[in-house]
């Protein structure tokens, strides 16, 4: 397990790099936070005062070091507008985004993996055709358009799900899931399309391997061969894609949160960027990057578990 420790230690330099990129990119965007805060009432003296208050008059490297130093003591800064600590904002926003992405992932897995397996086991069968259709449509349809379409059909016409808004978990799991149904479905469609293709090709490849024939010669029932052996061997490419697509999910969440008016990190970052709300954007991006890195670390650890040949170190 030393490799796990090594991976965890590598997390720090990666996050350090992310912090520099986020910090600099934000300052490259034209626009002055002080101007946004003061709006039409802005006076040169007022702007100068606010700029000084926010520490934006300091040289860039000094601003960066201050921010980083505060981060290490757990201070993510305060929202320029509301003066609420950013940590507090993230604490309410992050669970929404996490639930959205995890539900989407779950939905995509439930649909795509069984469909992809069936498509591979029965090429040219109904499942195979359904898989090609899902693969094509899911990749071609843009998130925002699908979201609007789903609202039109399932919410405005059929009245099955709310069209937008968020219901916290504390108001009951059913109401909460109902509110997430359409956004999660929207986000899951693109991922399912990728997953179904990867699953199909991975399972097809494993099915052609010698050991599958040996398993048949051992008299194992087909179901055991598929569920126990083939899926296990096919899971490495599937999990690789999930790890990579998690970034896509986080990006998609930004759009889907806008369409469905969900108070997640995505919509928080979008609004904060419009307002040049530096501390919020920086902290939000850092958290999203951390999530992405952790998910990929998780997939790497899963690899080793799934594929004994990748296990490092001596036994």
């Amino acid at each position: 397990m030393t490799s796990t420790v090594r991976r965890l230690l590598l997390l720090l330099p990666t996050l350090f790099g992310v912090s520099i990129v986020v910090f600099l990119l934000l300052r490259l965007i034209p626009g002055d936070p002080a101007q946004v805060i003061m709006g039409l009432r802005a006076t040169p003296e007022g702007l100068a005062a606010i700029t000084r208050d926010l520490g934006l008059d300091l040289p860039l490297h000094e601003q960066y070091v201050r921010w980083l130093g505060a981060l290490f003591s757990g201070d993510f800064g305060r929202d320029y507008r509301s003066n609420v600590p950013v940590t507090q904002l993230l604490a309410t926003r992050l669970p929404v985004t996490l639930e959205l992405t995890l539900l989407s992932l779950l939905l995509a897995l439930i649909v795509a993996v069984p469909l992809g397996v069936r498509a591979a086991v029965h090429p040219n069968g109904i499942a195979d055709k359904a898989a090609s259709v899902l693969g094509l449509i899911g990749i071609s349809i843009p998130d925002f358009w699908l979201g609007i379409l789903l609202v039109l059909v399932f919410s405005l016409t059929l009245g099955m799900f709310p069209s937008s808004g968020f219901v916290p978990f504390s108001d009951g799991i059913f109401a909460n899931l109902r509110a997430f149904a359409l956004p999660a479905l929207t986000l899951a469609t693109g991922l399912s399309a990728v997953l179904v293709r990867v699953t199909r090709s991975a399972v097809t490849e494993v099915l052609s391997r010698d050991f599958v024939r040996f398993l048949k010669a051992k008299g194992l029932p087909p179901r055991a061969i598929i569920n126990r052996h083939v899926l296990r061997n096919a899971s490495v490419p599937i999990i690789t894609v999930i790890g990579m697509q998690f970034g896509y999910l986080l990006g998609g969440a930004v759009i889907v949160e806008q369409v469905f008016d969900l108070p997640g990190v995505g919509s928080l970052i979008v609004t904060a960027t419009m307002e040049r709300n530096y501390p919020v954007v920086q902290a939000g991006m850092l958290v999203v990057a951390l999530l992405f890195i952790l998910v990929n670390l998780g997939t790497d650890l899963l690899y080793a578990w799934l594929n004994p040949r990748l296990r490092g170190g001596a036994r």
Partner: peptide, 23 residues
């Protein structure tokens, strides 16, 4: 299926690929 592996055993040519690498 009960015959295979039960009453009739079978061996293949390539031992490098006949066993499931994950088990």
């Amino acid at each position: 299926r009960r015959m295979r592996g039960g009453r009739i055993g079978m061996m293949f040519q390539n031992p490098m690929t006949a066993l499931d690498p994950a088990f």
